[in-house]
Simulated assay, not measured.
Amino acid sequence: MPDTITLEVARYRPGTDASPRVQEYEVPLREEWAVLDGLNYIKDRLDGTLSFRWSCRMGICGSCGMTVNGDPALTCGTFLADYAPGPVRVEPLANFPVVRDLVVQIDDFLRKLPTVKPWLVREDEPGVEDGEFRQTPAELAEYTQYSMCINCLLCYAACPVYGLEPDFLGPAAIALAQRYNLDSRDQGAHQRLDLLATAAGVWACTYVGECTTACPKGVDPAGAIQRYKLTAATRTLWSVLMPWGAR
């Protein structure tokens, strides 16, 4: 294995640069180094002007998501040795405006996320003295997979529908909504229905499945979307055939 590897890093300053460009850097190739380590080496040793996001380095915060050799990935969990002898191209996540270099603007996601009410909605809120909301292991298993989302937005970068339809809620927001729809303690599923069962919600998804492929936590947002399509279709059919049941 060679001692170094080339990182081809996208550089872009909107308002200053006419278009994005690629700059090459040679970084040490060590078996234990992730792509993020290579970027930090560039930032600390070679070029302090390089901009990118990162925080925990443990695959938990989701902030270091970038495009590595064409695929959305967490750079803290993507290892340079897997790309030897290189080069490795690092670019910002697709489908988002670039703030600078590898940093993207996620305002659209942050605006859409609260609209699906990704929290427990209760129509009756008993007091502490009334005891706990107990769940069986089976009830917990219903939503556990969808609760693993870390908002890294790799699924949005991988989603061709989101790239073409900016009104689409997107895979992570819908998966998180489904996480609460399936929670036995939640009473807000009917409140989310009007937003999720729309052309900008689950019906926009064409089931390419790239969101699930890109997810580093096994959330399966494509599965969550298809599961909710069935729920929405069943409720619609029920309201047509037995309208008094919808009241």
Rank of each mutant, 00 (worst) to 15 (best):
P14G: 09
S19T: 14
P20M: 11
R21I: 13
L29H: 02
R30V: 11
R30W: 05
E31W: 13
E31G: 13
E32C: 05
E32R: 11
W33I: 07
A34G: 07
D37P: 11
L39F: 01
N40L: 15
Y41W: 15
I42N: 00
I42S: 02
D44F: 12
R45P: 02
G48R: 13
S51R: 14
F52C: 04
R53Y: 10
R57N: 03
C61H: 06
G62S: 05
G62E: 04
S63I: 05
V68R: 00
L74S: 01
C76Q: 04
C76P: 03
D82C: 09
Y83E: 04
A84V: 09
P87E: 09
P87I: 13
D101Y: 09
V103I: 14
V103S: 02
D107A: 13
K112T: 06
K112M: 09
L113V: 10
L113Q: 05
V116G: 00
V116M: 01
L120C: 06
D124L: 13
D124P: 00
P126C: 07
G127V: 14
E129M: 14
P137C: 07
A138V: 14
L140G: 11
S147Q: 11
M148P: 00
C149Y: 04
C149W: 03
N151H: 08
N151A: 10
C152R: 01
L153A: 02
L153C: 01
C155T: 07
C155M: 05
A158N: 05
A158H: 05
C159T: 08
Y162V: 09
G163H: 03
F168W: 07
F168E: 03
L169T: 08
A177S: 11
R179F: 04
Y180L: 09
L182W: 03
R185F: 01
R185N: 05
D186P: 00
A189G: 04
H190S: 15
R192G: 00
A197L: 09
T198F: 06
A200M: 10
V202M: 05
A204W: 03
T212W: 01
T213N: 08
A214W: 01
K217E: 14
K217L: 13
V219H: 03
V219Y: 02
D220E: 13
G223S: 10
I225P: 00
Q226V: 10
K229T: 08
T231W: 12
T231H: 06
A232Y: 04
A233D: 11
T234W: 13
R235C: 11
S239P: 06
S239F: 12
L241W: 11
W244M: 13
